[in-house]
């Protein structure tokens, strides 16, 4: 056990959320809930990154009055990574929702197990 569990409360929260999201995406049979789990997992990562960029008592990384001193601003890199992460998350969510909609039209259920049973009953060509 390291020394910083309680100091890093944002990270702690992010890890718990990540675990919950991961498990939901992994084992939840309902497809829509799986996508919700995916989004929880992604949000946990954004929270983690946002906490990584923060430095006590510093400003957002927009240059004010021409002051370009490292002591003035927080770390800009995690913000950029979160931006990329959000865009990727939106894209992935859109694709999975469209897949789910298509599956629902085909099998009239959102339960992964039922869908797989129906698929196996269909036989294959």
């Amino acid at each position: 056990m390291g020394p910083n569990l309680l100091n890093n409360y944002f990270e702690t929260a992010a890890m718990i959320l990540f675990g919950i999201g991961f498990t939901t995406l992994f084992l939840q049979p309902n497809l829509i809930k799986k996508v919700i789990g995916l989004n929880i997992m992604d949000s946990a990562i954004y929270l983690f990154l946002a906490a990584k960029g923060y430095i006590d008592g510093r400003l957002a990384p927009i240059v004010v009055n021409g002051v370009t001193d490292m002591e003035t601003y927080i770390n800009p890199i995690p913000s950029g990574l979160v931006l990329t992460g959000i865009v990727v998350g939106v894209s992935v969510t859109a694709v999975s929702l469209s897949l789910i909609q298509k599956l629902y039209k085909e099998y009239h259920t959102l339960d992964m197990d039922e869908i797989l049973t129906k698929v196996s009953k269909e036989g294959d060509h």
């Binding site: 897949l99 789910i100 599956l103 085909e106 099998y107 129906k118 698929v119 269909e122 294959d124």
Partner: peptide, 11 residues
């Protein structure tokens, strides 16, 4: 139906 359900597992 088959490919779509295979795709969602893959995804």
């Amino acid at each position: 139906g088959k490919t779509i359900s295979a795709t969602i597992r893959y995804l």
